[in-house]
């Protein structure tokens, strides 16, 4: 959730005037408005797709497609202009990245700085898998897996005791 003007921290009076002034960050421009939309639906769809990948610089994790911020509006218009000029999606994205850096990409690009980030889900799943595997192997080695040899009658009775309510 985006709370642009949420003020955290103890009061800093001199800053408050600035806070009021920075209302421009909340100056309404409204996420995608009809005036900026392209008449060609295919191009407009591509523009929406690109906009969803780009971060609104003055928001938290919000794409420029979602943002009311003034700058986001300008960037949306810019993206549409690039598409009209014949850019591919990637070229249009690169155009913005050249000016604002990787920071504008909501989906972090794969490069040495982000190797660890992108590898982390695999590493974590791998580690978890190893741990679970180890747990069962250890249990097996310690020979605690097999319940005592029971007759069918006993097994049934045991099940009733263990699963009385089934929960």
């Amino acid at each position: 959730m985006i709370r642009l003007l949420r003020l955290n921290g103890p009061l800093m009076l001199p800053m408050l005037a600035l806070v009021m002034a920075l209302a421009f960050y909340a100056r309404p421009a409204y996420a995608v408005n009809p005036d900026e939309m392209l008449s060609d639906p295919a191009l407009e769809a591509r523009a929406r797709e690109i906009s969803e990948e780009l971060r609104c610089l003055v928001c938290q994790n919000q794409s420029i497609d979602d943002s009311d911020a003034d700058l986001a509006h300008d960037l949306r218009v810019l993206v549409r202009e690039r598409l009209l000029a014949g850019d591919t999606n990637q070229q249009a994205i690169n155009y913005i990245v050249a000016r604002y850096g990787d920071y504008v990409l909501l989906n972090p690009p794969l490069k040495p700085d982000t190797y660890i980030l992108w590898a982390s889900p695999f590493i974590l799943v791998g580690l978890a898998g190893l741990a679970v595997f180890g747990f069962y192997r250890r249990k097996k080695r310690e020979g605690r897996t097999t319940p005592a040899n029971l007759t069918d009658q006993e097994r049934k009775r045991l099940n009733e005791i263990l699963n009385p309510s089934g929960d």
Partner: peptide, 10 residues
């Protein structure tokens, strides 16, 4: 390192 954003797609 560089300044990146880890957004919803990730």
């Amino acid at each position: 390192g560089t300044i990146i954003t880890v957004g919803p797609p990730f």
